[in-house]
C-alpha cells in the first residue's frame, strides 16, 4: 500500500503548543507497515498531545515539524481528511454522542472512509464478526455512541471502530487505562487480530501491562516532549524494573537539550539539530 519507498508514518521534529505552552519539543518517529510501536512515558510527558496532534485536534497548535503519512504531510488536512486517508485514533476518553446510534455512526464513518456507501449486507456481516471478536452484545449497535458505556465498553467500542474502518495507521491512546484484566485481554486480543503487514500501530501507554499482551517491535520513551530513548521490547521490562525515575534521571544528568542525544540509537537518530 505504501507509495514508493516512503515509510508508512513519519513524525519529523514535531513541536506542539497548547495555549502558548510548548508541550512537544521536537518528536521524531517512524512506523513502517506491519510494525507495532509502543510509546511510553510518565504523566505530563506529552503522550496525549502527540496522539491528538497526529489526528489534528484544533486545540493543539503545531509550531514546527511534519507528520508524513505515506510520504504526504497531513498537517494541513482536517481530521476527517486524515481519517479518510487511513489514519485512526483510539481515544483515551471517548466522548458520548447523545442521540446518535452506534450503528448509524459506523455506517456514516465507513461511508466516509471508503468514499461510497457500504452495502447493508456487507456492513451487517462485518459488524457481527467484529462484535463477536470483541465479545460485545449485538444490542450495542442500537445504543447511543459511548453514552452510558462502562470504561471497558468504551475501549472495546474504540477497537470495534478500528476493526471496521480498517486503517493503515492506528494510534491507540492509553486504550489500556481503566480496564480490568479481563477487559484488557479482550481488547489486546482484538488489536492482535488486526495486526498484519498492512497496518502500522502506535500503542501509547503509561503502564507496561498491555504490552504483556501486545508485543511491540519497538519501544519509545517520551519525556518532557521528546523521545529520550528507543529500543526493543526488552525496554518495557527494564522500565518496569527501574521505573520512570530511571529515565528522568538520565534526562536530569544531561544538559537541557540532552533528550535528542539520549535517543541515540533510536528512530530519532536522524534528528540532529544544527
Amino acid at each position: 500500500m505504501a507509495s514508493n519507498d516512503a515509510p508508512l508514518f513519519k513524525v519529523e521534529d514535531l513541536h506542539v503548543s497548547v495555549e502558548d505552552t510548548e508541550i512537544l519539543k521536537g518528536v521524531d518517529l517512524v512506523v513502517n507497515h506491519g510494525e507495532v510501536h509502543a510509546l511510553m512515558g510518565p504523566n505530563g510527558s506529552g503522550k496525549s498531545t502527540l496522539a491528538n496532534s497526529i489526528m489534528g485536534h484544533p486545540r493543539y497548535k503545531v509550531t514546527k515539524g511534519k507528520v508524513l503519512f505515506n510520504g504526504t504531510n497531513i498537517l494541513s488536512l482536517t481530521p476527517d481528511k486524515r481519517a479518510q486517508l487511513g489514519l485512526f485514533l483510539a481515544f483515551q476518553y471517548p466522548v458520548g454522542i447523545p442521540g446518535v446510534v452506534m450503528g448509524n455512526f459506523m455506517r456514516a464513518a465507513m461511508k466516509a472512509r471508503r468514499g461510497e456507501d457500504v452495502p447493508v449486507r456487507e456492513f451487517r456481516k462485518l459488524l457481527d464478526e467484529t462484535l463477536d471478536l470483541l465479545k460485545m452484545d449485538p444490542s450495542f449497535v442500537r445504543r447511543y455512541v459511548n453514552e452510558g458505556f462502562s470504561g471497558g465498553e468504551k475501549k472495546r467500542a474504540e477497537v470495534l471502530q478500528m476493526a471496521m474502518l480498517k486503517p493503515e495507521m492506528a494510534v491507540l491512546d492509553e486504550t489500556d487505562s481503566g480496564l480490568d484484566i479481563d477487559a484488557l485481554k479482550i481488547v489486546a486480543e482484538g488489536i492482535n487480530a488486526l495486526r498484519g503487514p498492512d497496518l502500522g500501530v502506535l500503542v501509547i501507554t503509561h503502564y507496561q501491562r498491555i504490552l504483556d499482551h501486545i508485543t511491540p517491535d519497538k519501544v519509545h520513551i517520551l519525556f518532557d516532549g521528546r523521545i529520550v530513548k528507543t529500543g526493543g521490547p526488552e525496554l518495557v521490562h527494564e522500565l518496569e524494573e527501574r521505573g520512570y525515575d530511571w529515565i528522568t534521571n538520565v534526562e536530569g544528568t544531561d544538559a537541557s537539550d540532552a533528550g535528542a542525544e539520549a535517543v541515540g540509537a533510536g528512530v530519532g537518530a536522524g534528528k540532529e539539530k544544527a
Binding site: 489526528m55 489534528g56 485536534h57 484544533p58 482536517t78 481530521p79 476527517d80 486524515r82 481519517a83 479518510q84 485512526f88 485514533l89 481515544f91 471517548p94 466522548v95 454522542i97 447523545p98 442521540g99 446518535v100 448509524n104 455512526f105 456514516a108 464513518a109 466516509a112 472512509r113 447511543y144 471502530q161 474502518l165
Partner: peptide, 20 residues
C-alpha cells in the same frame, strides 16, 4: 473532533448531532 476522527466531515457531524 471525535466524529471527524472517524472520517465524518464537520458539517455532516453537526447535522448528525442536531438529529441526535
Amino acid at each position: 473532533f471525535y466524529m471527524q476522527s472517524r472520517g465524518i466531515p464537520a458539517n455532516e457531524a453537526q447535522e448528525m448531532l442536531v438529529d441526535g
